[in-house]
């Protein structure tokens, strides 16, 4: 692998956040197997992965674009679209499912008109589903902007989301 050929390619823009990505790649020695780690850092910094980010990371690590795109789309943690101002994650693990997670999703879809994985047209709230957050003792659980809300009730949840 020609890992070193592309080292030194300049960042897509003079946005200072690219430095954090560069630091991460340097610490990993620009090794191609560090791809997932670098994509994690890039998404943490920019919120999502756009085409510029994917090609920059790929070229820097010597990983072909097809493989970078393959990895970025294989893992559900990575997103290629910008997220809304707020995020609402509905846990759909088994304990939440038997305690009514689907009623929560139905209420959100009805009242906010948005399906899991999408953002409201005004870009305000992104609704996501999680496999299991491990907050099973508070099922059904919802995470709004990083804060866990246990024993969620559809009407109250919609109310909270509308007031965000």
């Amino acid at each position: 692998m020609a890992t070193s050929t592309f080292v030194g390619r300049s960042a897509p823009s003079d946005d200072k956040r690219w430095r954090q990505v560069d630091v991460r790649m340097r610490r990993l020695g620009y090794r191609p197997d560090g791809l997932i780690e670098v994509l994690h850092t890039t998404q943490e910094v920019f919120g999502y992965l756009d085409d510029d980010a994917l090609s920059y990371v790929g070229e820097s690590l010597g990983v072909p674009p097809s493989k970078v795109y393959g990895v970025a789309t294989f893992y559900s943690h990575f997103t290629l679209k910008p997220q809304g101002l707020h995020t609402c994650v509905v846990c759909t693990g088994t304990a939440c499912y038997i305690n009514g997670a689907s009623a929560l999703l139905a209420a959100i879809s009805k009242e906010l008109g948005v399906q899991p994985g999408a953002t409201t047209p005004d870009g305000r709230v992104s609704v996501l589903k999680a496999r299991c957050l491990g907050a099973c003792s508070m099922a059904p659980a919802v995470v709004i902007d990083g804060e866990v809300h246990g024993h969620a009730v559809p009407a109250r949840l919609v109310d909270v989301l509308e007031k965000l």
Binding site: Q43, V89, L128, D145, G146
Partner: peptide, 12 residues
């Protein structure tokens, strides 16, 4: 100060 994972997992 707290940050949350992009998937909204519990804050650290």
């Amino acid at each position: 100060m707290s940050t949350d994972g992009p998937d909204g997992s519990a804050p650290v």
